[in-house]
Design a protein around this nucleic acid. Structure first.
Lengths: 111, 111
DNA sequence: TAAATTTGCTACATTTTACGTAGCAAAGCT
DNA sequence: AGCTTTGCTACGTAAAATGTAGCAAATTTA
């Protein structure tokens, strides 16, 4: 499945630098979006699919498996949910939201 | 080139939510890595390629163009460099490093 | 308890993205 | 004038994502 594992070669670091491993994981399509949406609360596979608006089941399934093996997601009685560590990276990503709001203004000018 | 633009459909948001646009941009392969390495200082195309350890020129060129259009990278007399906004997202990503160090321990246990 | 619905996926064919190597034209250096 | 470095493009191959269809198991409903 090619899960990026710290200590083993990952994208950006042949020696497996931990940050590059994390970038490799989070830098895959939908990964951050899934974490973001899952923070709204645990839910079923199909509900998560809808929250993401346009992810294919194939890709969602892959990302879920990867993120699960990476200790960021788990399966509970309520469906899929963020683990404690998953919630932690959410908190680390959270500041991006307000920043993105400002950043978005760049694009409005040069319409 | 399909640059994710806030306000227009992006991966994760048909209405173009600004955060999803940012996730779309940063979530492409090598994007965060490039920003990270560029923060070490401005450099040439080829030097950047080496810093990334294993990126192909094709992909590097693409990401550079995208990040440039997204106001995160610019070209100076010293070569490629982060813009002010580029430095800002670097600062937002920075906390991930120490977190990743702890996160990496998960993988050492189950060898 | 039998039928209908929902759920978590998988199959499969197509498109998109990334890789990797080769190499060229322009600029800089000697 | 020659040699090197630089920024990149070409091109063929491999990998990843898409999108639609649908199935088997679990759950809900009648």
């Amino acid at each position: 499945m090619s899960l990026p594992i710290p200590g083993k070669p990952v994208r950006g670091s042949k020696s497996g630098n931990h940050l590059m491993a994390l970038f490799d994981l989070l830098g895959r399509s939908w990964a951050m979006g899934i974490i973001w949406r899952l923070n709204e609360g645990s839910c079923t596979f199909r509900a998560l699919q809808e929250r993401c608006e346009s992810i294919s089941p194939t890709t969602l399934n892959r990302r879920i498996k990867e993120l699960t093996k990476a200790f960021l997601i788990e399966r509970t009685v309520d469906g899929y949910a963020l683990t404690e560590q998953g919630k932690e990276i959410f908190e680390l990503l959270a500041p991006l939201e307000s920043w993105a709001r400002v950043w978005a203004k760049n694009f409005k000018e040069d319409a």
